[in-house]
Structures are given as C-alpha cells and as structure tokens.
Design a protein around this nucleic acid. Structure first.
Lengths: 118, 118
DNA sequence: ACAACATATGCCGGTCACCGATATATATAG
DNA sequence: CTATATATATCGGTGACCGGCATATGTTGT
C-alpha cells in the first residue's frame, strides 16, 4: 500500500463507486456526469486503474454479467476503499480550507508602495 | 498550459505561497507544518516543481537575498497561480462534496437486511 | 446493405510529476 | 572537528495517466 495521495482520476473512480457498484464503461459515463463533462476518462486509465485498485484491495469484482450480448464486470468499493476514500476526502477538505484561509489572509502582492520593506 | 489537475505536492506549494512569499527551504518547512508533519517534501520534488511553476507563470521570483551568508530565492504566487489555486480548491470542494454525498447515500453492500430497498 | 455510432473490455508505448539519492556550501552547536 | 540545520540544485528511476489501437456486439441512419 502506497500511502501516497490519490490522484484525480482514481479519486473520481472511488467516488463513482461510493453509492453503488458499477461496471467499467458505466464508470466512464458516471465520471463524465459527476464532473459535468470536464473529465473524460480514457479506457487506458480506467482499466489500468481498476487492475491496480483490485490489487490494492480498494475495490472488488462484485459479479460478472452479460447484458445484450455484451460481457460486463461489475466493480464494488471494498471496505478498505471506503475508508481510503473517507480519509482522502478528509485530507482534501483540510487542504482546501487551509488554501482558502491563506488566500484570504494574504499580504500585499507584487505591486507595492515605495516605502515597503525589503 | 496543461489544464490537468494539480497534484498534491504542487497544490501544497501554491497553498504555502498563498499568504506570503517564501523561499525554497522555507516552503519545505511550511508544508511540513501545514500537513502536521505528514508531508515532507523532497528537494527533488521542490526545485523541479518550482522550475515548472515558474515556466507556467503560476509563480515568480520576487527577489533574491543573502541571509547569514546563505543565498535565497524568494518565490511569490503570480496572478495566474492565484486563480489556478482558487479554481483548484473550488473543483476539489465539489469532488469532496460529491464523494461524501455518495458515501452517505450508498446502497447496502454485500450483506443487506432483508427488507432493504433495491 | 452498409456506415456510423454507442456499448464494452483490454493492451501498449510514451510522457511527466514525484521520489530518493547525491552534491555543494555556509553557519551553528556539541 | 564533526554533526546538524540552512539552502540550492541535479540525476536516475518509478508509476499513474494519456492517446492510440484492437476487438466485438447492438442500434440507428441512409
């Protein structure tokens, strides 16, 4: 387990699985919807990430099914994935709060009155 | 300008510069403080990121100074960096909210009470 | 009948941010 | 005189992500 922070596509993947299990292609559409069309996840990213997350135990294959002659694998968030997502959102919330606090508390920028100190 | 989302170390860098200009080594300490010791940025990451952010116009060198015989470069958040940080926090806030909404609204996992809805 | 598109999964090569190690130099503490 | 803190910088390796390609079926349009 690399304790490193989740990257954006991975975060969105876990988010898309947080309410209910979905299959690969459905995740692409869901992420498209979540982000209002800003993030169009590539299949290269998706299936690579799914393999990785499976291996890390953050997600699991809930079932495999065939719909309209097309095979599907339905992925579900594992318990480890759920706590990882919870921890990540908590951490991000803290960073966001800190960034906004600092942006509000900032000292005067580039253009500065003549008498300003070094 | 790559419109790609900022990675964690980069986000923390801009955050650490949001209230006032700082020099490289000071940024490492500041990020250590912000994250309560969880993130210890490596110099390899730092100076690489600073070069990149300079080239992208998100930060700028405010001044160079010598303190106690040691040379320093003081970096400041540029206007583009400020709006990039604002946009990023906004985006992250939305993702965090969505993730938490979904975690709360989740459908029952593997084991499910008999009367539970679909 | 055929083309185009949506659904669906998967691999492979390239890029680039990040990491760990290393190098350099000065000031201070023991 | 050695270790630690301050301070900047470079380099090689790793791995997530991207873009492109391949494959296959179902649906819609002409």
């Amino acid at each position: 387990m690399s304790d490193r922070p989740l990257q954006e596509p991975t975060l969105l993947l876990l988010t898309a699985l947080a309410d209910e299990p979905r299959h690969g292609y459905g995740l692409i559409q869901e992420i498209d919807a979540i982000s209002q069309g800003r993030v169009r996840m590539r299949t290269g990213t998706l299936y690579g990430a799914l393999d990785r997350l499976l291996q890390q135990g953050l997600i699991q294959i809930e079932r495999e099914e065939v719909v309209d002659g097309r095979a599907r694998k339905v992925y579900a968030l594992a318990e480890a994935g759920r706590s990882a997502l919870a921890a990540e959102t908590e951490r991000l919330r803290a960073v966001v709060a800190e960034a906004e606090r600092r942006m509000a508390a900032r000292r005067a920028p580039v253009t500065r009155p003549k008498g300003a100190l070094a």
